[in-house]
Structure formats: C-alpha cells, structure tokens
C-alpha cells in the first residue's frame, strides 16, 4: 500500500499523511453504525424494536441524524470549568484511541506502520486515553465528572496489568511483537489460530484479555466510570455537541481497537478460516473486519446481559482473579515452551 502510494504521488510527506488517514475510512462509519447496531441489538434483547423511523429501513440513519444534530449544537463550556483543558481533553482521548490504529494490520497488504514493536506500541499508546479522561473529568469541575474520571483511571490502571500479562503469554509462544508476523504464523486452517495453541493456556489468556479489555474500554460489566444511575454520564457529563461526539467516537474507536487485538492475537487476524480458500488482501480485509465485528457483538451482548459490578467486585476480579490466573498461564506457557525446546 505504501509503495503503491509512493509511486502514485511521488511525495513522501503526502503519502505518510494519507496513510495516517486511511483507518478513519473505517473508524467513522463504524462509530456511526456501531451505535445504531448497539441500539438495535439492545432493543431486540429487551423485546422492543429500537429506532425504526429515520431513513426508512429499520432506522438505519438514526445515528447519522444524531451526529448531524450534535454538530449543530451550541458549543457549551461550563462557566466553572477549566476552559483550556476542557477543550483539549476530547482531542487527547481521541488521539490516544486513534493512534492505536497505526499498528493494527487490517489485511496482509495494509498496516499503517510496519513496526516490529506493533503489539507493545498498541498497549502503551492507549495510556494517552487515560490521561485524556482524567483531564476531561477534572477540567469539567463537576462532582460526577471527577468521580467518573477517578474510577476510570483506577480501573484502567489496574486492568492494564492482566492485559499486559495475558499478551505476554502470547508473545512467549510466538516470539515476536510484530502483529503482521503473528498473523502470518496463524495462516492455515482454523486450528492454526493461536487460541487453540498450547491448549488450554492461550484459550484462558484469550478469555482474560477479553475481560480485561472490557474494563479498559469502560464497557459493562465494568462501566462504573459512566454508570448513569449514580454518575449521570461519568467523565463526559459536562460535554455536549461536537466534543461529546468526539468522546463517543473515541469510545467506539477504542472498542474496535481492542477487538482488533483480540482477533489478531487469538483468532487468526486477516487469515481466512478455510486455509487458502477465500484468502488474499481484500478477503483478508473482509475476514479481519468481520471477526472484529463479531467480537464487538459479544461486547454488546455482554453489556445488555450482565449487571454492573460494584467497585469492590471490580477490584477483586482484577487483582485477585485475573492477575493470579495470568501469572499461572505465563508459568504454564513458559514450562511448555521450555519443554518443547523452542
């Protein structure tokens, strides 16, 4: 992709800017239709219909209408808020979640930056989001926002540990941080996917990573930072209009980013589940996005099935369940790799 653009445009700087914009082609429509999808799924799970009117067919353009409304809204900054940080915070949040897309391999032919530290980069760059959330909560100067931000920061910081440890188990098996290389290792039929390797260790690592990543993106059952019954909307209580839309966009971008990591690490990434059949760069894109959406569906499904945890249950699961189990997985995988003499 990069070489193709270089030949076409013959200008290095322009190509880099274009490459940086390519994931937006997916992120923005995904956010728009992801919200609609979530509303429809939640509605059907609760035996109602959800949006039905806007756009004709099953209200497909409801979120587009919502987005247009949000863009037209007055740009409100609360009088008591810290104006500079209040304005800056949504951009930091979005920059943090979008930056992860630089290293996500959408297909064999497209990955924003082919760096051999891709996986490590994706984990570390997401910490920008935490800083953005804290700034948003603090700058709003409201109790709801501040509590939401503090909960969010505490939750993300503690769940980063099981995330990193479960990823470490995968890295010990594959021996690389390069996401494209991890994809290539899983080429072939379904049982080449990492989730079935070193059974049951990597399967458990997959479950732990998925649970911890739910907490990282503040989804139910870990949505305490924005629990509407206690905190109105958590850290983005005071945001409205364009800035609220940006916060929402970042949230959905983040959701897809963690799903992309689940898919790449455990479910074969852009590889076709049928081996050589239906593979190739464009089919790769199809499989990758399809698997990603399937993981998103599980996230939504869990959100409308499970109740929210209490704060003590949240910390209990993080520190006393997920972390010891991920250490056990690392020990098991380490012993296996050592015994196999790789």
């Amino acid at each position: 992709m990069k070489n193709f653009l270089l030949e076409l445009l013959n200008n290095e700087a322009l190509v880099y800017v274009l490459m940086a914009l390519v994931p937006l082609i997916w992120v923005i429509p995904f956010a728009l239709f992801g919200v609609w999808w979530e509303r429809k799924i939640s509605a059907h799970m609760q035996d109602r219909l959800g949006p039905m009117l806007t756009g004709g067919w099953h209200g497909w353009s409801q979120t587009i209408a919502d987005a247009v409304k949000l863009l037209q809204k007055e740009d409100l900054v609360p009088a008591a808020a810290d104006k500079k940080l209040f304005v800056l915070a949504p951009y930091i949040v979005f920059a943090g979640s979008y930056a992860a897309y630089a290293a996500i391999p959408f297909s064999a032919a497209f990955v924003g930056a082919e760096i051999n530290l891709g996986l490590f980069y994706v984990i570390s760059i997401s910490s920008l989001v935490v800083v953005g959330l804290i700034l948003a909560g603090w700058a709003s100067n409201s109790k709801w926002s501040l509590f939401g931000a503090m909960r969010s920061a505490a939750q993300i910081v503690s769940y980063e540990v099981p995330v990193a440890l479960s990823i470490l188990a995968v890295v010990m098996v594959v021996g690389t941080f390069d996401l494209q290389e991890i994809n290539q290792l899983q080429t072939g039929p379904v049982w080449h996917w990492l989730v079935f390797q070193k059974f049951p260790f990597l399967f458990l690592a997959c479950v732990i990573y998925f649970l911890a990543s739910l907490a990282e993106v503040n989804r139910t059952p870990f949505d305490l930072p924005e629990s509407e019954s206690e905190l109105v909307a958590g850290y983005h209580t005071e945001y409205s209009g364009m800035r609220f839309a940006l916060m929402y966009l970042a949230e959905y971008a983040n959701m897809f980013a963690v799903s992309a990591i689940v898919v790449t690490l455990f479910f074969g990434g852009w590889n076709s589940p049928f081996g050589e059949f239906l593979s190739g760069p464009w089919w790769g894109l199809f499989w990758f996005l399809g698997k990603g959406l399937a993981v998103i569906f599980v996230q939504i499904w869990l959100r409308w099935t499970l109740p929210r945890l209490r704060v003590d249950q949240l910390t209990y699961i993080g520190w006393k369940v997920l972390i010891p189990f991920s250490f056990a997985i690392i020990l098991g995988v380490g012993a296996w790799v050592l015994a196999a003499g790789q």
């Binding site: 910490s127 800083v131 804290i134 603090w138 931000a149």
Partner: peptide, 8 residues
C-alpha cells in the same frame, strides 16, 4: 497518571 491522580 499517578501524578494527575495524586493532584486530584
């Protein structure tokens, strides 16, 4: 993050 947390 620790710093910001501390300040808050």
């Amino acid at each position: 993050v620790l710093l910001l947390f501390g300040v808050m």
